[in-house]
């Protein structure tokens, strides 16, 4: 089955323009035979939204999303936006839209608020890591900083996730690597490592473009359940990556390395409980 990753450049704070381009990319992905098209974190709004947060936020029943709902009758979509909850809390969210419905919502759980990041100032924290069935199979969506915490990957894994969608808008930094920013290299290491350790596809959609001198690091990729890079994008250009993902390769990887079978969540939770109790005591 084919999956598409749209390495995307957003216009900061212009929902309409970004929406239109999202539809165009989706049409192209559909034409090229993909069943799912994945976009980066906050692709419909731009990343450093700051006070624009409150101007570009949409509620999930908003007619503004109609073009995507319509598009999803032809190809499943994962898009990033600012979600406004009914009680007016604003989340950095990703939606899985399929066959005219928003089938799954992931609200970013870890909001980086340090150094150049200021997400905790504007967004509410998500609290759920929940696997769902995408067109590909058992899947989870995580957003950027989520993946820098092992716990989120573990929680996806333990729910049987075979396709991990990793959405990011990662500003480039670090000049110690070849042909890419330092952070792009970390993402690749992460994809190769987590792909292998979880026996899952790691599908990484990152931004390109520039917001006030933050140059997003591109290099989107798909890593296999054997931890190999299947496809990778350039550091700067918008492009559509397409790859064939194979359920049988997940099976093969998990037969050879039965880490999910041997995993012991009861032991983990007992120890977590003990550690927390000891800390409180």
């Amino acid at each position: 089955m084919k999956v598409a990753v749209a390495q995307f450049k957003s216009v900061l704070g212009d929902f309409e323009k970004n929406l239109q381009k999202t539809v165009e990319f989706s049409e192209e992905a559909k034409k090229r035979g993909a069943k799912v098209c994945v976009f980066p974190e906050l692709n419909l709004t731009g990343y450093n939204v700051w006070d624009i947060t409150f101007e570009v936020a949409v509620q999930l029943n908003s007619p503004k999303l109609s073009p995507l709902i319509e598009m999803s009758r032809e190809i499943d979509l994962i898009v990033g936006l600012v979600e406004e909850s009914p009680e007016h809390i604003f989340y950095n969210s990703a939606l899985y839209i399929s066959n005219g419905n928003i089938k799954h919502v992931h609200r970013k759980v870890f909001l980086p608020t340090y150094g150049m990041f200021d997400e905790g100032r504007f967004f509410g924290q998500g609290n759920r890591i929940e696997a769902f069935d995408s067109a590909l199979g058992r899947s989870s969506i995580l957003i950027c900083e989520d993946l820098w915490h092992m716990s989120t990957v573990y929680l996806s894994f333990i729910q049987g996730t075979e396709y991990l969608f990793a959405l990011s808008a990662s500003p480039g930094r670090g000049y110690k690597e070849k042909g890419m920013f330092g952070n792009a290299e970390v993402w690749m290491n992460m994809g190769e490592f987590y792909g292998r350790m979880t026996g899952s596809y790691f599908i990484y959609a990152n931004r390109v473009g520039c917001e006030d001198g933050f140059v997003f690091s591109g290099k989107s990729f798909i890593a296999s359940p054997y931890g190999e890079l299947v496809v990778e994008a350039s550091p700067f250009d918008e492009e559509l990556l397409i790859a064939d993902v194979k359920e049988e390769l997940v099976r093969s990887a998990r037969a050879n390395l039965p880490l999910l079978r041997d995993e012991r969540p009861e032991m983990v939770i007992k120890n977590l409980r003990r550690v927390l109790d000891e800390k409180q005591a």
Binding site: Y175, E177, G179, M180, C210, V215
Partner: peptide, 22 residues
Amino acid sequence: HIEDKAFIESVLTYFIREEVQK
């Protein structure tokens, strides 16, 4: 030390092009 000067040159020229043209 800058490891890959060709890459950093690409970043800086990309930045100029993007920010000027946008």
